Simulated scan of single mutants.
Amino acid sequence: MATTVDARGLSCPQPVLMTMDEMKKLGKGEIQILVDTETSRENVSRAAASQGWQVEDTQPDGDGFRVHIVKR
């Protein structure tokens, strides 16, 4: 089951920092990140990829996006 990081309502770099903290805490696994801007979605996806996490899926979610990242 994926951990959820709810970064809606926050502007960059806060969503990226919250995601990075969760990636470091877990080491591997699945994380779903909730963001509400295109910029946050792109920045979170880039940050995850730079740390060896794969962006499995990005879906619209209400007024924002749900980014699902995985590291096995």
Score class of each variant (00 low, 15 high):
residue 23 M to C: 08
residue 68 H to V: 13
residue 35 V to Y: 02
residue 61 D to T: 03
residue 60 P to H: 09
residue 63 D to L: 12
residue 33 I to D: 06
residue 16 V to H: 00
residue 29 G to D: 01
residue 5 V to C: 04
residue 5 V to I: 10
residue 54 Q to W: 01
residue 54 Q to L: 15
residue 2 A to G: 02
residue 13 P to Q: 11
residue 8 R to D: 02
residue 70 V to A: 11
residue 18 M to E: 15
residue 50 S to I: 06
residue 53 W to V: 00
residue 50 S to W: 01
residue 44 V to A: 03
residue 44 V to R: 03
residue 31 I to P: 02
residue 24 K to F: 12
residue 67 V to N: 05
residue 70 V to S: 10
residue 29 G to E: 12
residue 55 V to P: 01
residue 40 S to I: 04
residue 8 R to H: 13
residue 29 G to N: 08
residue 13 P to L: 12
residue 22 E to I: 01
residue 13 P to Y: 08
residue 67 V to I: 15
residue 18 M to D: 05
residue 51 Q to F: 04
residue 4 T to I: 03
residue 42 E to T: 15
residue 20 M to N: 10
residue 39 T to C: 07
residue 30 E to Q: 07
residue 67 V to K: 10
residue 30 E to K: 15
residue 60 P to M: 03
residue 30 E to L: 09
residue 47 A to Q: 04
residue 21 D to L: 12
residue 51 Q to I: 00
residue 59 Q to R: 13
residue 48 A to C: 08
residue 43 N to R: 14
residue 28 K to V: 00
residue 21 D to V: 15
residue 65 F to C: 09
residue 11 S to C: 05
residue 15 P to W: 06
residue 64 G to A: 08
residue 17 L to G: 09
residue 37 T to N: 02
residue 33 I to P: 07
residue 38 E to T: 11
residue 22 E to H: 00
residue 30 E to T: 09
residue 22 E to G: 10
residue 10 L to W: 01
residue 15 P to N: 05
residue 35 V to S: 05
residue 23 M to H: 07
residue 3 T to V: 14
residue 66 R to E: 06
residue 32 Q to H: 11
residue 13 P to R: 10
residue 50 S to K: 13
residue 32 Q to D: 15
residue 44 V to P: 05
residue 37 T to P: 11
residue 57 D to V: 00
residue 51 Q to G: 03
residue 53 W to G: 01
residue 24 K to W: 09
residue 5 V to H: 11
residue 66 R to G: 03
residue 72 R to G: 14
residue 60 P to Y: 03
residue 70 V to Y: 06
residue 17 L to H: 13
residue 1 M to L: 05
residue 50 S to M: 11
residue 66 R to W: 05
residue 18 M to L: 15
residue 55 V to S: 01
residue 13 P to H: 01
residue 44 V to K: 01
residue 39 T to I: 07
residue 6 D to Y: 07
residue 54 Q to M: 10
residue 40 S to N: 08
residue 69 I to F: 08
residue 28 K to A: 05
residue 70 V to E: 08
residue 9 G to I: 01
residue 37 T to Q: 02
residue 20 M to F: 10
residue 61 D to K: 11
residue 48 A to M: 09
residue 34 L to I: 08
residue 55 V to R: 02
residue 14 Q to A: 12
residue 4 T to M: 07
residue 43 N to H: 11
